[in-house]
Design a protein around this nucleic acid. Structure first.
Length: 813
RNA sequence: GCCGGGGUGGUGGAAUGGCAGACACGCAGGACUUAAAAUCCUGUGAUAGCAAUAUCGUGAGGGUUCGACUCCCUCCCUCGGCACCA
C-alpha cells in the first residue's frame, strides 16, 4: 500500500471538491430535508490565520458535515469583519492604504482557510468594508433615525487619547481601551447614539428560556451569557423619593430600592455634576474647590483611591419625610452622575459604603429594626455600629413582615403620601456608535446651517468612503480633512451643507451580517427576507466568550428592531450559542509574538497534514476549555491517522463481521452521533480510538467495518477518508455524500453482561450472567456462589439492592 | 463585594447517582534492528506485599443514600465577568 502523504492528498481533494462544487449550498433545495444553519463569528482580517481560528472553526465544520450526512441541507457560510482600527493603525505604520491592507489580508486568509478543508461554501462570502454591504448599514441607521432610535447626543463620553476616538462602555476594560490598552478619559463629545435602552426589557433573558410563552422556540444559550447580559442590563425596581431642602424652595430626589431602610437615613450625598451642586458653586468656595478637583480626576485616579471616601459638606439640610429628621447634604465623587438621579440617600446602618462615608465624616449611624427577624438584612457589622454608639429605632408598623414585604409596603406608603414615585432604573446605557476615525461606515447624515441635521435620502445611498484621505489621527475625524467629500448640498433646502465625517462603530457591522450571509449580493434591501425566512434563526452560533456584553447583545437588539420593522418574525437570531475556549502556547501562556510561543497552523499542516491538526484540536480538550497546545500530544493523533490508513491492508473481502464486531461497530456509531451535536468531539474521537484498538487486535477485518469506520471518521478527517474511499476503494461518489450509518439497536444487546457485586457498597467481585435472565434471584444466587463475594458474606443474612443488569449490592448487618 | 465557571494520576482529560481514572500524552520494560528512528507488545493513582490481595484515594469538613467525582450544607483555592449601581 502507498504511504500516507497528507500534503499530496489534501491539496488534491481540496481542488477536486471545489471543481465538483461538492459543498455548494442550494437555498432553493426542493427536497424535504430540514435546514441547518451553522454560524461562526466572522473573523477580523488581521493578516494571518491563527491556530485559534482553526480551533474555533474545525468543530463547527465537523458538526456541519455530520448534519449534512444525517440528511440536512446545511448552510455554513463565511465572511470578514473588515472595518476597524487595526487596519488604520497598520496603514499609518506601514504607509499602505487601509483598504489595500485589508483586502490583501482577506485574500491571504481565505487561502489559509481553504487548507483547513472545511465545507464552507465560498460562494457565500460577506465582506463588511465593501459598499454593497455598508450601504445597508447606512440604510439601517436611517431606519433607526426615522424611528427615533438613533440620535445625536452630547454627553460625557469615554475617550481614548491614543486612538483619538470615543468608545462604548462595553469596549472598556479596567478603565483602559480594549484596542490599545491605554487610559480612557471622560470627555464631553457630541456623538451618535442608538437607543438600546428602549429595548432593555425585551433583551432581558427569561430565567428559564423557553418557558416564556412569547418565545415559541426553545432558545439554548449558556447561563453565563444570559446572566451576564441580564446583569449588564441591570433592571432595578425602586422609588424616587423627593426631599425638601431646608431654607430653600428646592428639592433633591434620590433613587432607592430599599425605602424601608430610610428610617435610618441620616445624610444625603450628591454627585459633583448634580444640578443643585452647580447652583451653589458660587456661594460655597469649599464645594467649588472640591468639584473642580473631582472633575479633573480620571477613572484611574478614582480607582487608585479605592474605597477611601472624600467629600465636602454643603451647609444645607434635607428633611426626611418618614421621621422628620434633618439630613446633612454632602458632595462626593463616589456618587455617579450617570446613575439614578445623581443623588444618594445615606443609610449608614445598612449599607457598607454609606457606613464608610459616615464614619469618615462623623455622621450619625442609625440601625433600623424592621420585620419579624428584627432586622433588615443588615450589611454593616453589628459590632462596628455599636462601637459608634448608633441608635436603634423601631418602625412599629412593619414588625410582622419579611424584608420583601416591608420594602413593598413602605414604597406604597411613600407614594400614597406623595413623597415619591415608583420607578425602574437600568444599568445599560445607550450605545455610542460614533467613531472619529476613517476605516468604517460613513454616518449617512448631513449638517445644514439652516435645517440642522438632515438624513441622507435613501436613494443617495451608499455614501461611499473616499479613498483619498489623510487618516493620521488629529482629534477630529479624518474624513473632515477631505473637503471635496465633506462639501455637499442639503437634501431639504439645497443650500450648502457638510457631510457627517464620523464613522460607525464596527460592532454595528457585525450586528446583522448573518442575515446578509444568506444572499450577500442582494440589492433590494439589507437582506433577502424570503431566504432569511427559510434559513434563520441560526441553529447554532459559535464564538468567543468576550462577546457576551458587546456583540451578541447588539445582534439581539438588531434582531428585535428588524422584527419591529416587519422584516422577520422571530425574537432571537440564534437558537443555540456555544462559546469556544482558547488554545494557549506550549508554555501555557497566551500566544504572542513577543513571547515566541506562537503555533503557526501552516507549519503544523505541512508537518502533519490538515486532518491531523483538525483532529488534534478536537481531541486536546473540550471546545469550551482553555489549555496549552502540546507539541508531543499531536504526535499521538498522527499515529492514530496512520493506523487507520494502514488498517486498509487488513481488509479481507471474504469475511463478515460477527456479533461482537457488530456490537463494537454500532456502539461506536452511536457514541459518535451522540457526541457531535453536543460539541463533545474529544470523547467522540476517543470512541473511535477504542474501536480502532479493537480492530487492530484482529488478524483480518471485514470491508463493512472498514467502510463504516471511514464514514464516521469523514467529518473529522475529510481528506484521508476521501482518499481511501475514492482512490483506494474505487468508490464513485464522495464519502462526504454518504448517509450517516444507521445504528441498529439489536446489535447493541449483548449475550452476557458483567455485573459488579458490592458488599456494603464496596465492589468485591464481578459476575457474568446471561442477558436472557437478569432476574434478581438468578443474579443473587450466582453472586453468593462467587468465591470472592462469599468471603465477605460469611454466611450471614443480607439485604439485597439490585439494579437490573447494572449492579448488585448486598448489605450485611 | 456581587454573579458565573472550575478544582479528578506525572500531563490533557473521561465518568452527572451504580466497577473512578475511558482515550491520549509521557514514562518504564520487552520484541524487531549491527545500531538508531519508526512500528508493535506489556505495564503505569498512592501505600504495603514475591504474589493473590488489602487499605487509602476525585480541594477540606459535614450530611442525604444500600451506594456520592456526581445531590445538599459550610469552608478554602482558582479562573472569568461586573463593580463606590444607591
Amino acid at each position: 500500500m502507498k504511504k500516507y502523504l497528507p500534503k499530496e492528498i489534501e491539496s488534491k481533494w481540496q481542488k477536486t471538491w471545489e471543481e465538483e462544487e461538492l459543498y455548494s449550498f442550494d437555498v432553493n433545495d426542493k427536497t424535504s430535508r430540514g435546514k441547518y444553519y451553522t454560524l461562526v463569528e466572522l473573523p477580523y482580517p488581521s493578516g494571518d490565520l491563527h491556530i485559534g481560528h482553526w480551533f474555533s472553526f474545525v468543530t463547527p465544520d465537523i458538526l456541519s458535515r455530520f448534519k449534512r450526512m444525517s440528511g440536512n441541507n446545511v448552510f455554513f457560510p463565511h465572511g470578514f469583519d473588515a472595518f476597524g482600527l487595526p487596519a488604520e493603525n497598520a496603514a499609518i505604520k506601514r504607509k499602505i492604504h487601509p483598504q489595500d491592507w485589508t483586502m490583501k489580508n482577506i485574500e491571504t486568509m481565505t487561502n489559509q482557510f481553504k487548507t483547513m478543508g472545511t465545507m464552507i461554501d465560498w460562494n457565500y462570502v460577506t465582506i463588511t468594508c465593501l459598499p454593497e454591504y455598508y450601504r445597508w448599514n447606512q440604510w439601517i441607521f436611517l431606519k433607526m433615525y426615522e424611528k427615533g432610535l438613533a440620535y445625536r447626543g452630547k454627553t460625557l463620553s469615554n475617550w481614548c487619547e491614543t486612538d483619538q476616538t470615543v468608545l462604548a462602555n462595553e469596549n472598556i476594560e479596567n478603565g483602559k481601551c480594549w484596542r490599545c490598552g491605554n487610559e480612557v478619559v471622560q470627555k464631553e463629545v457630541a456623538q451618535w447614539f442608538l437607543k438600546i435602552t428602549e429595548y432593555a426589557d425585551r433583551l432581558i433573558w427569561p430565567e428559564n428560556p423557553g418557558a416564556s410563552p412569547e418565545r415559541s422556540r426553545r432558545v439554548d444559550w449558556p447561563m453565563s451569557v444570559r446572566v451576564g447580559q441580564n446583569n449588564w442590563i441591570g433592571k432595578k425596581a425602586g422609588i424616587n423619593i423627593t426631599y425638601k431642602i431646608k431654607g430653600t424652595n428646592e428639592t433633591i430626589t434620590c433613587f432607592t430600592t430599599r425605602p424601608d431602610t430610610n428610617f435610618g437615613a441620616t445624610f444625603i450625598v450628591l454627585a459633583p455634576e448634580q444640578t443643585f451642586v452647580k447652583s451653589i458653586l458660587n456661594k460655597n468656595s469649599e464645594v467649588k474647590a472640591y468639584v473642580e478637583k473631582a472633575e479633573k480626576k480620571s477613572e484611574l485616579d478614582r480607582m487608585a483611591e479605592g474605597r477611601k471616601k472624600t467629600g465636602v459638606f454643603t451647609g444645607y439640610y434635607a428633611i426626611n419625610n418618614l421621621n422628620g429628621r434633618e439630613m446633612s447634604i454632602w458632595v462626593s465623587d463616589f456618587v455617579l452622575a450617570g446613575f439614578g438621579t445623581g443623588a444618594v440617600v445615606g443609610v449608614p446602618g445598612h449599607d457598607l459604603r454609606d457606613f464608610e462615608f459616615a464614619t469618615q465624616f462623623g455622621i450619625d449611624i442609625i440601625r433600623v429594626v424592621v420585620g419579624k427577624d428584627g432586622d433588615t438584612s443588615a450589611i454593616t457589622d453589628k459590632k462596628q455600629v455599636q462601637e459608634k454608639e448608633g441608635t436603634m429605632i423601631n418602625s412599629d408598623f412593619l414588625n410582622d413582615l419579611d424584608i420583601h414585604e416591608a420594602t413593598k409596603k413602605v414604597m406604597e406608603y411613600i407614594e400614597k403620601k406623595g413623597w415619591g414615585k415608583k420607578t425602574v432604573t437600568y444599568h445599560i446605557r445607550d450605545w455610542s456608535i460614533s467613531r472619529q476615525r476613517y476605516w468604517g461606515t460613513p454616518v449617512p447624515m448631513i449638517h445644514c446651517q439652516k435645517c440642522g441635521i438632515v438624513p441622507v435620502p435613501e436613494k443617495d445611498l451608499p455614501i461611499e468612503l473616499p479613498y483619498e484621505v489623510d487618516f493620521t489621527p488629529k482629534g477630529k475625524p479624518p474624513l473632515a480633512s477631505n473637503e471635496e467629500w465633506v462639501k455637499t448640498t442639503c437634501p431639504k433646502c439645497s443650500g450648502p451643507a457638510t457631510r457627517d465625517a464620523e464613522t460607525l462603530d464596527t460592532f454595528f457591522d457585525s450586528s446583522w451580517y448573518f442575515y446578509r450571509y444568506v444572499n450577500p449580493g442582494y440589492t433590494n434591501g439589507p437582506f433577502d427576507t424570503q431566504k432569511v425566512k427559510k434559513l434563520l434563526p441560526v441553529d447554532i452560533y459559535f464564538g468567543g466568550a468576550e462577546h457576551t456584553l458587546g456583540h451578541t447583545l447588539y445582534a439581539r437588539f438588531f434582531t428585535k428592531f428588524f422584527k419591529d420593522l416587519g422584516l422577520i418574525d422571530f425574537e432571537e437570531f440564534a437558537s443555540k450559542r456555544i462559546q469556544h475556549g482558547v488554545v494557549l502556547g506550549p508554555d501555557g501562556n497566551r500566544m504572542s509574538k513577543s513571547k515566541g510561543n506562537v503555533v503557526n497552523p501552516d507549519d503544523m499542516v505541512s508537518q502533519y497534514g490538515a486532518d491531523v491538526v483538525r483532529m488534534y484540536l478536537c481531541f486536546m480538550m473540550p471546545y469550551e476549555a482553555i489549555g496549552p497546545w502540546s507539541t508531543e500530544a499531536i504526535e499521538g493523533m498522527y499515529r492514530f491517522i496512520n493506523r487507520v490508513w494502514y488498517l486498509y491492508q487488513n481488509i479481507d473481502k471474504s469475511i463478515k463481521p460477527d456479533k461482537k464486531d457488530l456490537f463494537f461497530m454500532h456502539k461506536t456509531i452511536k457514541k459518535v452521533e451522540q457526541d457531535i451535536p453536543e460539541v463533545k468531539t474529544n470523547t467522540a474521537i476517543a470512541g473511535m480510538m477504542e474501536w480502532l484498538n479493537y480492530l487492530s487486535r484482529k488478524e483480518k477485518i471485514s470491508e463493512e467495518e472498514y467502510k463504516t469506520f471511514l464514514t464516521i471518521l469523514a467529518p473529522f478527517a475529510p481528506h484521508m477518508t476521501e482518499e481511501l474511499w475514492r482512490s483506494e476503494m474505487k468508490e464513485k461518489e464522495s464519502i462526504h455524500l454518504q448517509p450517516w450509518p444507521q445504528v441498529e439497536e439489536k446489535y447493541l444487546t449483548e449475550d452476557e453482561v458483567n455485573i459488579p457485586v458490592q458488599v456494603n457498597g464496596k465492589v468485591r467481585g464481578v459476575i457474568t450472567v446471561s442477558s436472557a435472565d437478569l432476574s434478581q434471584d438468578t443474579v443473587v444466587k450466582k453472586a453468593t456462589e462467587d468465591e470472592k463475594v462469599k468471603k465477605y458474606l460469611e454466611g450471614k443474612d443480607f439485604k439485597v439492592v439490585y439494579v437490573q443488569g447494572k449492579i448488585l449490592n448486598l448489605i450485611v448487618k
